[in-house]
Write a protein that binds this DNA or RNA. Structure first.
Length: 292
DNA sequence: GCGTCCAGGTCTACC
DNA sequence: GGTAGACCTGGACGC
């Protein structure tokens, strides 16, 4: 372990509400220890895996590495993953006027944890489609354990596109247990490895959201839910990213447990404008923090 | 232990 | 543009 360094939080920041903002903390290479308030990830820096351990210190985060690496690059990744540079003032202004969302403002929530790369978020999102969370965990763990490079502390990074492009369909079927997603993952890995698709460009794209969504949906395996989930992770919250869990949560919270059309859900959150995707997410996840 | 059924989001073909 | 059926897995359930 190298000597730690520190990054100050911006004002109104919560490490816990960011780390536990959604299920990503439960997927390798992330590991989260809520008691120790410690989030671990394994980054790939210059083709080398580096384990990064982040510990909450109230006003700042302590950063520890298991090998030497450029602090500037690590800091850039940490700020990205922990959404430290996101400006949520507009969302907070809207949320504070809504009874059900005042907890977000009071707890400095609303920052959605993301992976160091859009590539990793993209693959993980495809692994959330049409399956249980346990299967998502299993597919992602298999990818990391079987294709990720190893850090000096024996933890594994998320595989690169090149690593994922270097195996065949049978590997995805038999080793990753990705089912029908296997060909999608392989096709995507090859396209990213040869530069045909550059998911990282989505972060800074100046395209209108519908155009960017269209680009994302051009990837096989990415439909409306997956694209809107990815849009949230690149900082665009116009889409609700409705899946069965969100729908069920909405029916229970706002419709007496009765099924209603998606249009009705969309109308409910319309008042949040371009922040509606974040509004529904926060609305459905309040209970995750009740014990916090 | 085995077989059957079901949930989950996207793709493709068809209307 | 909307809809039906197929895709594949793990888990629940009944036997």
């Amino acid at each position: 372990m190298t000597r730690p360094f520190y990054i100050d939080y911006p004002k109104n920041y919560s490490f816990l509400h960011t780390a536990k903002s959604h299920g990503w903390y439960d997927l390798l290479p992330f590991q989260f220890d809520e008691t120790a308030m410690q989030l671990t990830h394994v980054l790939t820096i210059d083709s080398v895996a580096v384990r990064v351990t982040l510990t909450d210190e109230k006003t700042r985060v302590k950063v520890e590495l298991d090998r030497m690496a450029h602090h500037a690059e690590i800091e850039r990744s940490v700020r990205h993953v922990l959404r430290m540079d996101d400006d949520l003032e507009q969302f907070y202004a809207l949320a504070s006027a809504e009874d059900g969302l005042s907890w977000v403002v009071a707890n400095n929530g609303g920052r959605l944890l993301r992976s160091p790369t859009v590539w990793e978020d993209l693959i993980k999102t495809i692994c959330t489609t049409n399956c249980s969370w346990s299967l998502t965990r299993s597919m992602v763990a298999n990818l990391v354990q079987k294709l990720g490079s190893v850090s000096s502390s024996s933890d594994r990074a998320f595989p690169t596109a090149a690593a994922m492009a270097a195996v065949d369909q049978a590997f995805y079927r038999d080793e990753i247990r990705a089912g029908y997603r296997g060909p999608y993952l392989l096709e995507l890995a090859r396209a990213v490895a040869d530069g045909t698709i550059n998911p990282e460009s989505w972060l800074s794209a100046e395209l209108p959201t519908p155009e960017l969504k269209k680009q994302m949906k051009a990837v096989k395996g990415v439909g409306d839910y997956a694209a809107e989930n990815l849009l949230k992770l690149v900082g665009r919250y116009d889409g609700l990213a409705l899946d069965s869990w969100l729908r069920a949560g909405y029916y229970k919270r706002h419709n007496s447990g009765t099924v209603c059309p998606d249009k009705a859900i969309e109308q409910h959150y319309e008042k949040f404008g371009e922040w509606r995707g974040l509004a529904i997410w926060c609305d459905m996840t309040e209970r995750w923090f009740e014990a916090a």
